[in-house]
Design a protein around this nucleic acid. Structure first.
Lengths: 205, 205
DNA sequence: CAAGATACGGAACCTAGGTTCCGTTTGTCA
DNA sequence: TGACAAACGGAACCTAGGTTCCGTATCTTG
């Protein structure tokens, strides 16, 4: 049951039938929209209907709802992970880290499925942590450690703490769609990560 | 369908039968334990079994699972609300507010049902916000406003922001049972609420 | 255009968990 | 202890949503 490749089956095969190809795109689009708005609460029936397709057709492309969700989330995570990797060579480790946190939380705010994935809501948490969200958490950890070593982050915070905070913020992102409020909350937390008042990394008085 | 009073029906009535009285207590105890450990994921079947009782007996005391949950949560919320009211006359408004935040998050960490109620998980959110959790949010808001007026809290934070942060932290509390980590995260957030020590914050527009 | 392969739709199935119902048991009172 | 009301237990019911199945429709190829 192939998950990629728009025009041919995985491995050996002959090209996909034209209608099947069209449907695959429609399903992806529909899933994208539904998962965006409702996160893990989106239903297969809803996605199928939105795609103008029967549920069977959805299942012919993705074995389970979770697989479909993962595919969609993965598509959103990939560019984030890439951005994180670039951040690793940012001359200002603190800014790179904070900026990345702001970015993923902002993304979570408008794409509920990402929020759910990061918050571990409605999914087998261990599974998520390996897959889609796992990559992101790894990326965050690397940025975090670099920032902390550079002295841009308080020493008494651990990577696990960051993970926990992100999970919490992701939940908030799932609930609110108010980007402004979300941003204020995130800024607050991010500010709090700076080393105690003594050394404001970016701003001498 | 009475919800209070251990020995008699609400309003007019004759005393409760002895076995009914015993069962009511057993149900309350069982619900307390199940909701503590599993939050809203606790099941009526599980509660009934733990209480050594049939599901019908549970429903004879509480019309719905949510009603039972509310009763249990309310019992935990009451003393908190009371503490908050006392906090309103604390000479140090900032400490009163922060202390209260720490207290409810700590409580949420070991009593998952409270975390769920505050995070709005698995429940009709509006309903929760009126009931059990609503009182708590109100209490927090009062403590917050007083602390902010006293200058103990940054001026650019709103009561809604606090609500959002609590919801997020409550989700974290639901996931982790590590009181230490929870405390670190909460401290971080609480610290962040203090007015910027001397210098203007350096946040990007 | 016919034949076969491929894909489709959506009814039917399954599971989980909340809720109801009713025949049976137990407590209470005389 | 007998009789009645109160309470019990738990099977049965209902709903929601994920998943499977298969008869039918559509594409592709010769």
């Amino acid at each position: 049951m192939p998950v990629f490749s728009l025009s041919s089956a995985a491995g050996g095969g002959r090209p996909l039938r034209a209608d099947a190809q069209r449907n695959r795109v429609a399903i992806l689009d529909a899933a994208e929209a539904e998962f965006r708005d409702r996160g893990m609460e989106a239903s297969i029936d809803g996605i199928a209907e939105r795609a103008g397709v029967g549920v069977g057709t959805v299942y012919r492309n993705y074995d389970t709802k979770e697989a479909l969700m993962r595919a969609i989330v993965a598509a959103h995570v990939a560019p984030l992970v890439e951005a994180a990797q670039q951040g690793l060579s940012d001359p200002d480790p603190g800014a790179a880290f904070c900026g990345f946190i702001r970015r993923i939380t902002s993304e979570s705010c408008e794409f509920k499925a990402l929020a759910d994935a990061l918050a571990g809501a409605g999914l087998d948490f261990a599974a998520v942590k390996e897959q889609a969200a796992g990559d992101l958490f790894d990326a965050v950890r690397q940025l975090f450690e670099r920032a902390q070593q550079a002295g841009a982050i308080r020493g008494d915070v651990t990577a696990d703490d960051i993970g926990a905070l992100i999970q919490g913020l992701s939940h908030t992102a799932h609930i609110t769609s108010d980007q402004g409020q979300m941003a204020r909350c995130v800024d607050l937390v991010v500010d709090a990560l700076r080393p105690a008042a003594a050394a404001p990394s970016s701003r001498p008085a």
